[in-house]
Amino acid sequence: MSGRSLRVLALGVGFAFLYGPILWIVAFSFNEGRLVTLWSGFSTRWYGELMKNQRLVEAAGLSLLIAVASASVATVTGALAGFALARLGRFRGRGLVAAALGAVLTLPEVILGLALLLAFVSLDAWLGWPGRGAGTIVAAHATLGMAYVALVVRARLADFDRSLEEAALDLGATPPQVFLRVTLPLTLPAIGGGWLIAFMLSLDDVVLASFVAGPGATTLPMIVFSSVRLGLNPQINALATIMVGIGALAVMAGIWLLGRKERRA
């Protein structure tokens, strides 16, 4: 077998594995019948029923709100951490900050969820704050998202050609001007990409949310999770197709952002 056909085979098998299940869901979301394994004709009725499901629509709204809020907090704290780790050289606590961010990235979510819940319950007992609800989900998701934003921003700054900043300084720009007109624009795509990652993570998370939510707040993944536990359901296929569409749009936006980086640099 030639190298070329081996490559085609490797990619064919890999992508069939990655995309087969997703295509299966998308296809059956347009199935007319209630059975999710037997095709009985094209229909969009499950999308219609989805829109009529009040509980689901409300949860989707709450999830979007939490995702936007937590991604924004994560972008601020994460970008600051990324800048500090890439640019401040040695400072007290550097190792701790880097290790904590790395641990958040890799730790099983069950541990992180349990730990965060214990912290919220204790803070609540000591200070009467923050209670439990959408706010604690935002804080938990922001902590997770922050680690990803810091990682992306730090990697971008590490690849960054510093002679651009030196040139600006030589040409008489003040350090704040250099930051605003050189460093920040060149890092912006990474920051934007980080926001998108944090947004998608939040929209997708069921474990952290279940631990820290309390009885008041129910996010979309929590509802999906409890209904999936009960078995297959064509409405979930329709919902899944919509979520896949949002994910695809986010990736295209991400590629567009990174493409801008290539042109500018």
């Binding site: 869901i25 999906v224 899944a240 986010a250």
Partner: peptide, 20 residues
């Protein structure tokens, strides 16, 4: 294309395998 499934819902991807 490799990264795309990573940003589509994790729950949905696991759910697909129940059906398969």
């Amino acid at each position: 294309l490799v990264a795309l499934p990573f940003v589509t819902s994790f729950l949905v991807r696991v759910y697909a395998w129940i059906g398969l």
